[in-house]
Design a protein around this nucleic acid. Structure first.
Length: 997
DNA sequence: ACAGAAGCTTA
DNA sequence: GTAAGCTTCTGTT
């Protein structure tokens, strides 16, 4: 087991009881054998195995084991004979299931671990420690509070029945103390189920408060006299011994002399036939079918296994009154079922504890760790002259070996272009730890521009050889690759046939932690912020503007300083930022909403979309003609030739020379010539402003779209490849640039013609699938507005219903103006409504707008509450959260400037809604490719436009694709969140984007 | 050559 | 009233 590896430890015994009680007791096999818990267990394992193979889900186990109790007699009974003494025998219909669940584990090809004299919890504690010491992480699949003491930076818990991660913040939230204090807390509270005495009269709340006050149990017991409350003081003094023995009982043993090493737990592919044979025997038809599909096994050809009901050891419940059986069986029950593994290893070096040691880092809590890391990072100086240039394969291989050994490596590419689809690889850099970084030049050219020889600088490793050496490292599942804006490097590497996994992206970690705080998430900014180090800037190395030279023209020494510094800084940023994720409780946002999207977007960008050059060219001609005609007319009306594109000149003519009324000034004192102003003038019968507005529309379409887009057609692929930014918006939305394909016109007929140029390849169709009113639906859910929820549930016109509620007008035969106003108000809410804004939007007096808003709040009081609580929350915390836990910071929310404050309040109101919608479509995107593949469909996801996804697929598969896409999108919030409002997705296919939309 | 303002496109 | 990106013009460097 190495750094970056991840061990899953399933608390098998805990799960059995929990599944038995949680699931309906009815499940029986045809012969009457009760199998409810077995069924729950198998489904849970299968889900974990699926997730394990789906990097999109987040945590991906490399190692896996299921742990069981062996018998009820453990060393704890010697400490305290009453331990678990009052536990009754397991229910009758559960007894046969113990053995079946062990068989199920074996059928899944998973190790089944237990040991006499120890509880499952002790084995879990020991293995978690071993994993951590090996540099890996562990996830304990359980929700038992007894295991929460193990949670730490490298150890988390996962509750499979609630699909919930339990980390340090969750422990603190539930118990009021961090994991390392759980032992003391349990010692005080005791546990009636396990018969751990504790201190009478002390429950979790009091215990947490006492531990907060005194620090730990020993201090508390020593200074118990200081406790104010008479009864409480007396009880603690009287029961100090009980507290101490309770502590011994609840403290998990982390040094069990286990016989299986972690190497025996390496996760194996499930053996389809073997598993199906077992599932068939259990008569789990749904799961059998799923497993058959996923493993490509023909279930019909497999015979059900013969399953004997074996009485597993833990049937012999606690010694009292149970169904008997040998309490220390001679024939030990199955121990390891798979993986020969070294019989040696584990159990040997029984070092300190799972908590509180560490190499120079007192890792008491993630907060402390991240604080220490941050301090150390600023203190460490960065020496850009200390890096090496790797000029031969042997040295490169040595670095690769070093990185493999380290289990973690920072990685960065240097190329000739910002466009990863056109960029040529020039070199790459690696860092194996802070300060140890190197650059590998591959394709640097000498300055001489001679025609002969091409000017390739000598002593560079041929690209093919270098990539052959690098590929195993980048694809090594046990080596974590760290990059800053990995998506770029991923596209470059994909083009060279290399996949990169597993990985972390420092830009995305920063984004999850600090969206909305001042400054971006680029490396230069992050380096200054967290390392106090000013990086070498790209333009100082490669120039800019007309002085720009490709990176391949840069001198290798200079390139080495720049490139290796990038890797070094990236590594250091990771060391600082990664622990902050856990400290701030943001791990799951990062792992579910950010990290898995990187390869999804990389693929979308690489696919690109076909744009018809001819259509754009024809449109451009038409637009030019129209604009020229308008120019002539405008010049005649104005009485002089001027630059129509200059708002300054236009303003002088309209409001100065011609003296038109209604002029307003912009903040710089210029006459405003905005469309609104010109429209108003046009409405009063002035011809010139109308023509200006039309001229602007035509020239806008021409310059931004018909003329610019063809320049983005990639000469190799003949397609347009946009670039999506993952960390550009504060709310979690993506942004698109080079070109921006998220603002292609749609509202006017003229503009829509641009969309007809976005086409499917021959024999294919474009499918557009968009969420209907997603933000309003989120509002209805978050603010819990019964009328809106009902309207969405009924699938009726939401704006008409709103209008009907507000103005007491029946929906039937409603004037369009009434509906329009209600619609404006609904959107206004999403934007953090103000009377000023609504008045502007509807061109009505501010008083009237204010009255509408008042009326709206009267009819939907929940909206008012939503707005108020959001503002309050933002003011208190400095951020707001989406339904999925994404945080958006508003550092200026407490500004003394009322307009700044109001702006931040509106933004925070909007952010929860816009951000939640963004999270939902992100979840859909993360799952989409797998869902399509599983349905054996070849559709490719090409574009995202905030609430819309565009696909391309062969005509024959259109009909089958749409329901799959719709299903994934409409259920994207599940299972993390069950929205109280249905999501609706409209989808259609056509030859071009205009007709599909 | 660059930065900011104004204006316009989208969800 | 929210969130973005691109083009043109304009003044500064």
């Amino acid at each position: 087991m190495k750094k970056g590896d991840h061990l899953f430890l399933v608390d098998g015994s805990g799960y059995i009881f929990r599944a038995y009680h949680a699931l309906p007791p009815l499940t029986r096999k045809s012969d009457g054998l009760p199998v409810g818990a077995v069924s729950g267990f198998c489904n849970m394992l299968w889900k974990l195995m699926l997730d394990a193979r789906n990097t999109d889900v987040g945590i991906v186990p490399t190692h896996f084991a299921v742990i069981f109790d062996y018998s009820s007699k453990t060393f704890r009974n010697e400490l305290y004979p009453e331990y678990k003494a009052n536990r009754s025998a397991p229910p009758e219909d559960l007894i046969p299931q113990f053995g079946l669940i062990r068989q199920a584990t074996r059928a899944f090809n998973l190790p089944c671990i237990e040991m006499e004299g120890f509880e499952a919890d002790d084995l879990i504690a020991t293995y978690a420690r071993l994993a951590r010491e090996a540099g890996g992480d562990a996830t304990i699949v359980s929700s038992d509070k007894d295991l929460m003491q193990l949670v730490g930076p490298a150890v988390g818990m996962y509750d499979p029945m609630k699909d919930r991660q339990i980390g340090i913040p969750e422990v603190i939230e539930k118990w009021g103390v961090p994991p390392e204090k759980m032992i003391d807390l349990q010692a005080l509270t005791g546990d009636s189920v396990d018969n751990v005495p504790g201190v009478p009269g002390i429950g979790p709340k009091t215990a947490a408060q006492l531990l907060e006050q005194f620090g730990d149990l020993d201090t508390l017991l020593a200074r118990a006299g200081e406790i104010k409350q008479d009864k409480r003081r007396q009880s603690i003094i009287d029961n100090a011994d009980k507290a101490r023995i309770s502590r011994d009982l609840v403290t998990l043993k982390i040094d069990v002399p286990v016989t299986e090493g972690l190497d025996a737990f390496v996760l194996q592919e499930p053996d389809g036939p073997k598993l199906i044979a077992f599932l068939k025997a259990m008569e789990f038809s749904t799961l059998t079918r799923r497993v058959a599909e996923a493993t490509g096994t023909e279930a019909g050809e497999i015979e059900a296994a013969t399953v004997a009901v074996e009485l597993g050891p833990d049937v012999h419940g606690p010694d009292v009154g149970s169904a008997g059986g040998p309490s220390s069986p001679a024939g030990p029950s199955p121990r390891k079922e798979r993986g020969e593994g070294g019989s040696t290893s584990a159990g040997a070096p029984l070092s300190p504890s799972l908590r509180g040691e560490g190499k120079g880092e007192g890792q008491d809590t993630p907060s402390q760790l991240s604080a220490q890391r941050a301090e150390a990072a600023v203190a460490a100086k960065i020496d850009t002259t200390a890096y090496t240039a790797i000029r031969d394969v042997a040295t490169l291989k040595a670095w690769v070996a070093e990185a493999t050994e380290a289990g973690v490596v920072a990685f960065d590419t240097e190329t000739t272009s910002l466009d990863p689809m056109q960029a040529e690889l020039v070199g790459f850099s690696l860092a194996t730890r802070a300060g140890r970084a190197a650059y590998v030049p591959l394709n640097h050219k000498s300055g001489r521009d001679d025609l002969l020889g091409g000017g390739l600088v000598e002593n560079q490793i041929p690209i093919r050889d270098a990539l052959a050496a690098l590929k195993p490292l980048l694809e090594d599942r046990s080596v974590l690759k760290i990059a800053q804006n990995l998506k770029y490097d991923l596209v470059i590497m994909n083009r060279h046939g290399i996949d990169v996994a597993p990985y972390d992206d420092t830009m995305l970690i920063s984004y999850v932690l600090d969206a909305g705080t001042s400054g971006g998430h680029g490396m230069d900014a992050l380096s200054e912020k967290w390392l106090g180090h000013k990086t070498i800037h790209f333009k100082d190395v490669a120039g800019s503007g007309k002085n720009f030279v490709g990176f391949d023209q840069v001198d290798i020494d200079r390139a080495t300083a720049y490139a290796a510094e990038d890797a070094d800084v990236t590594f250091r940023l990771w060391e600082v930022l990664k622990p902050r994720l856990a400290a701030k409780g943001m791990v799951s946002v990062y792992e579910r909403l950010e990290r898995p999207l990187v390869p999804v977007l990389a693929k979308m960008e690489q696919r690109g979309i076909s744009v018809d050059r001819q259509i754009l060219s024809r449109l451009s001609g038409e637009l030019a003609q129209g604009a020229a005609r308008l120019e002539d007319e405008i010049n005649v009306l104005a009485g002089e030739r001027f630059n129509i594109g200059s708002p300054k000149q236009l303003g002088d003519i309209l409001f100065g020379r011609m003296g038109l009324p209604g002029g307003t000034k912009t903040k710089t004192g210029q006459w405003s010539t905005s469309a609104q102003v010109l429209e108003d003038l046009a409405a009063e019968g002035h011809e010139l402003p109308r023509k200006i507005v039309d001229w602007r529309q035509l020239t806008k379409l021409k310059s931004t779209y018909t003329d610019a887009l063809p320049g983005f057609i990639n000469p190799d692929t003949k397609r347009v490849h946009t670039s999506y930014a993952l960390a550009a918006t504060s709310t979690g939305r993506l942004s698109s640039s080079d070109p921006n394909l998220q603002n292609i016109p749609v509202r006017t007929a003229e503009g829509r013609k641009i969309r007809t140029a976005f086409i499917a390849d021959k024999g294919n169709k474009l499918i557009s699938a968009d969420y209907s009113q997603i933000e309003l639906r989120v509002l209805a859910h978050v603010a819990e507005i019964p009328q809106l929820k009902q309207a969405f549930a009924d699938g009726v016109d939401i704006h008409a219903v709103t209008a009907s509620e507000m103005f007491n007008v029946p929906v039937e035969g409603m004037p369009s103006e009434v509906r329009r106003r209600a619609k404006a108000i609904n959107f206004g809410i999403i934007y953090g409504i103000s009377a000023f804004g609504l008045a502007n939007q509807l061109s009505i007096p501010r008083e009237e707008a204010g009255a509408y808003i008042k009326k709206y709040f009267e009819r939907f009081p929940g909206i008012r509450d939503y707005i108020d609580t959001t503002k309050e929350y933002a003011r208190e915390h400095g951020y707001v959260e989406t339904v999925f836990g994404r945080r958006i910071h508003y550092p200026e929310i407490r500004s003394s400037n009322p307009s700044v404050r109001a702006f931040n309040e509106r933004a925070s109101i909007n952010a929860r809604l816009q951000g939640t919608a963004a999270d939902i479509i992100r979840r859909a995107m993360v799952r989409m490719d797998d869902a399509l593949a599983k349905a054996k469909l070849s559709a490719r996801m090409l574009l995202q436009v905030h609430d819309e996804l565009i696909f391309e697929t062969v005509e024959a598969e259109v009909a089958a694709t749409i329901p799959v896409v719709r299903d994934i999108m409409e259920n994207a919030a599940m299972p993390a969140v069950s929205l109280s409002v249905p999501l609706q997705v409209d989808a259609r296919a056509a030859n071009n984007w205009d007709e599909a939309h």
